[in-house]
């Protein structure tokens, strides 16, 4: 049903810390590894060992540079579905294959009813919809729906694959609908923001901006005065071994 369910209290999503993301792609590859045998399996690869290798990924890590010269900085930016509150990718879908779950806000595609018209991928501003050109259906980040509730996994493993694998703890998962949840508090503390809010999709996922570079409480720079009697100051320094 492409009508968006009346917003439930629960808004599961990711919080991604651009301050510690080192652009290692672990989240992207681990996502692929989990999901190629997961709910939306498989995630095909075309020309896998040939001239134009490319396939379906639910998470892709971009590298950017911001600013000029000595104070330019390199920023890494993982991009996946933001599980928007007003997802046009859902409303434009003519078949109902694209839908947003009422219970937790996760946006999914039903591969059995998708006709592969691709309109949802046009409607997603963030490039989060991935077309399986082999199966002819649309796929996307499932927020690891087959992990986060999976009673076959130990409690602590019931988080998205990309979150548990991130070596830099730059990815957090939780309920952004609950203002007291750890993720919500993190967003509040660090000034987390949503992408292109002006488009009105109301992304649930949040990004934490890179922190202002920790400039050490700099002691007054010591003047370069010439060295006088340097040795004398050590000559009768009382030291004991």
């Amino acid at each position: 049903m492409t009508a968006i369910p009346s917003p439930g209290a629960k808004k599961l999503g990711l919080v991604i810390d651009l301050d510690t993301c080192v652009g290692c792609h672990a989240c992207a590859v681990n996502c692929k590894e989990w999901n190629t045998s997961g709910h939306s399996a498989p995630l095909p690869d075309f020309d896998a060992y040939q001239a134009k290798p490319q396939g379906v990924w639910f998470n892709r890590v971009h590298s950017y540079e911001a600013g000029e010269g000595r104070d330019s900085r390199t920023v890494y930016f993982p991009r996946s579905c933001l599980h928007c509150e007003e997802p046009a990718c859902v409303t434009v879908c003519p078949t109902g294959a694209s839908y947003k779950r009422a219970e937790d806000g996760i946006v999914l595609v039903n591969a059995d009813t998708c006709i592969g018209c691709k309109l949802c991928s046009w409607a997603c501003p963030y490039g989060a919809r991935e077309f399986d050109e082999d199966a002819g259906v649309m796929k996307k980040c499932t927020l690891c729906i087959d992990r986060i509730y999976n009673t076959n996994l130990p409690e602590q493993d019931r988080v998205p694959a990309c979150v548990s694998t991130c070596p830099a703890q730059a990815r957090h998962f939780g309920d952004l609908g609950d203002p007291d949840s750890a993720v919500s508090r993190l967003v509040a503390e660090r000034g987390g923001y949503g992408l292109m809010p002006e488009l009105g999709y109301k992304p649930v996922n949040r990004y934490l901006p890179p922190r202002a570079r920790a400039h050490h409480a700099t002691p007054v720079e010591t003047p370069a005065e010439p060295i006088t009697n340097s040795f004398l100051r050590w000559i009768d320094r009382a030291l004991s071994r």
Binding site: H25, V29, N30, S37, A161, S164, T165, P167
Partner: peptide
């Protein structure tokens, strides 16, 4: 092989796995 993940109890990686390790399959 279904899935390879980091071992939380391991002294080196404490559960995380890098992109290479995640591509072990």
């Amino acid at each position: 092989l279904r899935y390879i993940e980091g071992n939380r109890n391991h002294p080196v990686n404490k559960g995380v796995l890098c992109g290479k390790g995640s591509a072990g399959i």
